[in-house]
Design a protein around this nucleic acid. Structure first.
Length: 509
DNA sequence: TCTGGGGTCCTAGGACCC
DNA sequence: TCTGGGGTCCTAGGACCC
């Protein structure tokens, strides 16, 4: 274990709800519940005002509605907006240290030993306070809570202790004092099932857990989990902060508003799910050998089926065909509540092929971040879906243009499940989505324009970003509701932040 | 109007191989 | 006839996380 509190855990407070309250003044101070607002939806995030009424993440939305008073706002998620805010924050974190592990859209670990910092408790406290200020400034008021400690375990617990907008530095030597009074459920990896089992054994606090012999824990929970609990209860945690992780699977699933039993309809749904999965595989330059399906019955029992092929694929039709065969093995006569399709045992052959062709030489090196847009040769990129521009493709090779656009964020909305918002009639298609490459020191972040996804506004309407290069961005004035217009080029200097909405970019008049 | 969607990791049993 | 044993791959299910 480290001798300094050199691991930070940064957690944005009720992020989805906070972004909504930031973007809409009338929501501030009111209970806001973000999640699936219709049918079988659940709560993604509740604002602190809504939490006062007992609303929690993963609670059925119907239950949240029963708990909250009139005047509560129930909102579908706007993933593009959350992602923008997330990118602003992650860019800030990358300035602190190169070793950042993004855990989710609103959470990350930082290893401060990879940067040049004063690692005394005082120094880390100063850094945490500064970082909190920077986050709130850069996001237009979304706050984060920070924990600093000698391990991931304690850093995460630290960030929870004083939420929202809190900072806790656990000084080395103090770990067990902080840890042992907490309920066992506060440990990462202790969910409802583990907690129940521990309660039955009379274990309620982490301190109680620390008195249970290793053999008992292994008996109850298996080797891996038992050993894990034994160590965590003693604050023994040397998990490193890891910045890049390879994806292990890609999947898509859907819970239907009403249970489906018609086999033809189920097969069609399977095809759509397979196409979504394949699209995201292609976007990530991935292929996989195993196709999985998931079927949830009306009584919530869930079965999975899988087949593994010799050769990996990213072909949606092939995935669909395999999925249909698997579905035929499952009894669906009683109706289906949820259907899912996944691909695992991934290989990155497609990506390897792209690299080995040399076609991408110089492309990635020009990207400041893994999710940034193109920084050169905009003419090589396909524009919006309606683009007439052919994309280059070596014979028989994966489609570079498609991959490049996807890497530039073209599939970001599908990847984050944004389709769930498409039904609410909001103009999600014209929501600007700005990728952040690297923040200018101390001031507004520099946007990276993503062709086919980002939208710029001027007084006449919205236009898709067509391409971008150093110091300029081209915009085609063609939105989902407007006919194709001219492509115009603007200097980046002519773009400015719209005062009403920090991440929203406008063309200067 | 009970229970989303995208993931990760672990376990256990069977097949198969040496 | 009284049947080893380790390693790896595959499938199904479950717990957990955000």
């Amino acid at each position: 274990m480290r001798g300094e509190p050199s691991i930070l855990h940064v957690d944005l407070d009720a992020m989805f709800a906070a972004v909504e309250q930031r973007d809409k003044v009338s929501l501030r101070g009111r209970p806001v519940v973000v999640g699936g607002v219709a049918g079988r939806g659940v709560v993604s995030t509740a604002s602190y005002e809504a939490r006062a009424f007992g609303v929690r993440s993963a609670m059925p939305m119907a239950q949240a509605r029963r708990r909250c008073p009139p005047g509560t706002a129930y909102l579908s998620p706007r993933f593009a907006a959350y992602k923008r805010t997330s990118q602003v924050v992650m860019a800030l974190l990358a300035e602190v240290t190169p070793l950042v592990e993004q855990v989710s859209i609103d959470e990350a670990y930082l290893d401060l030993t990879a940067g040049d910092h004063d690692l005394t408790p005082h120094g880390v406290t100063e850094l945490g306070l500064r970082l909190k200020r920077d986050i709130a400034d850069a996001t237009g008021g979304v706050t984060g809570s920070i924990g600093a400690a000698s391990s991931k375990l304690l850093a995460k617990i630290g960030s929870e202790l004083r939420k929202p907008d809190g900072l806790t530095v656990v000084t080395p030597g103090e770990e067990l004092t902080v840890l042992h009074p907490l309920p066992v459920g506060a440990l990462g990896g202790v969910g409802p099932a583990t907690e129940q089992r521990l309660h039955r054994a009379g274990v309620r606090s982490v301190g109680d857990l620390a008195r249970i012999p290793l053999d008992d824990l292994v008996d109850w929970f298996g080797v891996a989990h038992g050993n894990g609990l034994f160590r965590l209860a003693r604050a023994e945690d040397n998990r490193p902060v890891v910045s890049e992780r390879e994806a292990k699977s890609v999947s898509a699933e859907e819970t239907f508003d009403v249970d489906l039993a018609d086999p033809a309809r189920l097969n069609r749904e399977l095809d759509l799910l397979a196409a979504r999965v394949a699209g995201r595989l292609k976007a990530g330059g991935l292929t996989g050998r195993t196709v999985n399906i998931k079927v949830r019955h009306p009584d919530f029992t869930t079965v999975t089926r899988a087949v593994t092929r010799d050769q990996p694929t990213d072909d949606g039709r092939l995935v669909a065909q395999m999925a249909r065969r698997l579905l035929a093995e499952v009894d669906t006569s009683g109706g289906v509540r949820l259907l899912g399709v996944g691909v695992s045992t991934l290989a990155d052959f497609a990506q390897d092929d792209l690299f080995s062709t040399g076609l991408l030489d110089g492309f990635f090196t020009s990207l400041p971040e893994h999710f940034a847009g193109p920084a050169s040769s905009p003419e090589h990129f396909a524009g919006p879906a309606s683009s007439p521009e052919p994309v280059m493709s070596a014979a028989g090779e994966p489609d570079l243009g498609a991959a490049a656009v996807a890497l530039a964020g073209g599939d970001a909305e599908a990847a984050s499940g944004d389709e769930s918002t498409s039904g609410d009639g909001s103009a999600s298609g014209v929501t600007p989505a700005v990728g952040v490459a690297a923040p200018a020191t101390g001031v507004a972040p520099i946007p990276v324009w993503r062709p086919g996804q980002d939208v710029l506004h001027d007084e006449h309407g919205a236009g898709w970003v067509w391409g971008s290069g150093l110091g300029r961005v081209t915009v085609r004035f063609e939105g989902p509701h407007t006919p194709p217009g001219p492509v115009r080029t603007f200097a980046v200097d002519d773009l400015r932040l719209h005062p009403a909405d920090p991440p929203d970019w406008r063309l200067a008049p």
